[in-house]
Amino acid sequence: RDAVAGADLPGALVPAGAAVLAFCLVLAVLDAGIRTLTGTSPRVALGRPGLLTRSLGPVAVHGLAGLMMAVLWLSPYGPVAALLVLLPMCVAWWAFAQYHRERAAHQATIRALVQAVDIKDGYTRGHSERVGRATMMIARELGMDDERVETLRFAGILHDVGKLGVPTRLLRKEGALTPEERRVIELHPEYGHEMVRGIRFLGEARAAVLHHHERLDGSGYPYGLVGDRIPESARVVAVADAFDAMTSTRSYRRARPVAAALAELQRCAGRQFDPRMVGALVRALARHGWHPSVTADSHPVPPAATPLPG
């Protein structure tokens, strides 16, 4: 207060900075407490620095602007100069509001696309949201920052959006597909990529939509990429997609128990799936569990003799 009263801005920066840091730390601790109460382990909740780093910048900027107003108000320049500080703050507020409105519009578009896929393929209703959830669990287990976790969640949600370009009769067909029908269905990653490539904020999620059916050994589609040439985001979504497909009832087979699905993922790790992603999912499920809408709790299905179809 004495520093402000003397219009000494440098002298006021240290206590103001300490106040900003204390505020952000309290905010992060409260966020971790809420996450712990909702089921997240305390170690994971406290170990996520995303909220602290995200809030530190905006709070510091607003705190500095408020401090400048107080210093100018008490300076020889008077209240008029202090009020001029409000102008850039209003511009910044308008820019942030525009950003959030645009992001909300994109999210509404994503929800509409997912609902359209769910309506077209009734057997996979809810699959996209569950894959988004499993993708998010893997990404967090790998230590990715919050912004990238959110991007990968979008990748999981949108991975099957290309099925809108596949005839409904093929999606709902009971029994084995003919080679021609399988080739038509295998076009859905390319259809999906065409649909989302114009949504710029999706970033690497677009690559995941295109490549989530690639396999480490090069036997996947659409381009037969091998190993690390497959984008990391696609390798994450591939594991989440296969896991939910196995633990959900489909037209051509019933669901497997979670333990059997994880065993199958581990069996195919290194050939079809990235072992890092499989291990991350196993660790995440051991901590948080999994509660799919439809699952099998008994009478496990024998493991497939060939790698999962994806």
Rank of each mutant, 00 (worst) to 15 (best):
L25P: 08
V26R: 10
L30P: 07
A32M: 09
R35T: 07
T36S: 10
G39E: 13
T40F: 03
T40G: 01
G47K: 06
R48F: 02
A60S: 14
V61A: 04
A65I: 06
W73M: 04
P79M: 02
P88S: 00
P88Y: 01
M89F: 01
W93P: 01
W93M: 05
R103I: 13
A105G: 08
H106R: 09
H106D: 11
Q107L: 14
A108W: 09
R111Y: 14
I119E: 14
D121C: 02
S128K: 07
M144P: 15
D145Q: 07
V149C: 07
E150D: 15
T151S: 10
L152D: 03
L152E: 04
I157G: 00
L171S: 00
E174W: 10
L177D: 12
R182K: 15
L187M: 13
H193Y: 12
V196D: 04
R197L: 05
R200W: 08
E204I: 03
H211W: 08
H212F: 01
E214G: 00
L225H: 10
L225K: 13
R229Y: 12
P231Q: 04
V239T: 03
R250I: 08
S251A: 11
Y252T: 15
E264T: 08
C268R: 00
Q272C: 03
M277T: 13
V278T: 08
R283C: 02
L285Y: 15
A296T: 15
D297W: 15
P300A: 06
V301F: 10
V301K: 11
T306C: 00
G310W: 00
